[in-house]
Design a binder for these strands. Structure first.
Lengths: 132, 132
DNA sequence: ATTAATGATACCATAATTGTATCATTTGTC
DNA sequence: GACAAATGATACAATTATGGTATCATTAAT
């Protein structure tokens, strides 16, 4: 049970690194080296971030990636959603069987409450807040 | 990202059911029928609960399972731990690379905070509280 | 023209979770 | 005592999610 998967993790580290470069272009090979992360995998991740409008890419020699938005406008929930899908904690519990006694709904309520809290907390974290 | 896996889910439903029977013996086949859950899988789950002292089993014809403790003394975190292992939310983030800039530690702090909250909430739920 | 980069995409590997099968043992019932 | 109905133990299979690799096409600087 982890809140953040490896892909998200790598993505965040990469974004932090890129953010430090303030508009300069960073290539995958450089990043992979610095972060000590498998390059092809990182590449796939950056491509996804590009596709989702978090990064901007430049092709050709000397190309690479830069941030597409200010760090203050990149929320870690955005990143999580890209790599982990919708953020829900109560995926499976009692969904088909429509809660035969509705007692167990107390559990669902609790979990929904937890979910709300978790999302609120996570939504308070931007890339900027991770930078220093 | 789910807080509760299917095994835990099944286990909780089964425990609720068994708890209602107040000391009577419930067999896997009966339970599987009532809960509409694959029987061999449910069986494995109940065996685990027995092994962990949550249920007591009786072999032989007319055998089955009963609760080994009062519902008030069975915490859903106990059950989660049995099927999902240690309850941690910040498994993978920045553990090997020992936080090169310690900036990202803010994330870790946040997640640790979330984890504490989640555990506190979950620890307030017993089987009894799920019963009505 | 060459080289160093990304785009797109298909494929593979690993691990966790979910689920099945089987043989041995126990116990109630006839 | 034989039989049937239950669990104990355990190995195996299937499915899914995640992590990771490979490759060919395209772009752009030198």
């Amino acid at each position: 049970m982890k809140l953040i998967t490896r892909s998200t993790d790598y993505a965040l580290r990469a974004l932090c690194f890129i953010a430090k470069y303030k508009g300069k272009i960073v290539s995958v090979s450089e990043l992979a080296l610095k972060l000590r992360v498998p390059q092809p995998f990182l590449r796939k991740i950056l491509q996804a971030l590009n596709g989702k409008g978090i990064l901007t890419s430049l092709k050709g020699q000397g190309g690479g990636f830069t941030l597409a938005k200010e760090p203050a406008k990149i929320f870690i929930t955005d990143i999580m959603r890209i790599f982990q899908g919708t953020l829900r904690l109560n995926e499976c519990f009692l969904q088909k069987l429509a809660c035969p006694h509705k007692k167990t709904c107390l559990l669902r309520k609790k979990i929904t409450g937890i979910e709300r809290y978790v999302l609120r907390e996570l939504n308070s974290i931007t890339l900027e807040s991770l930078l220093e």
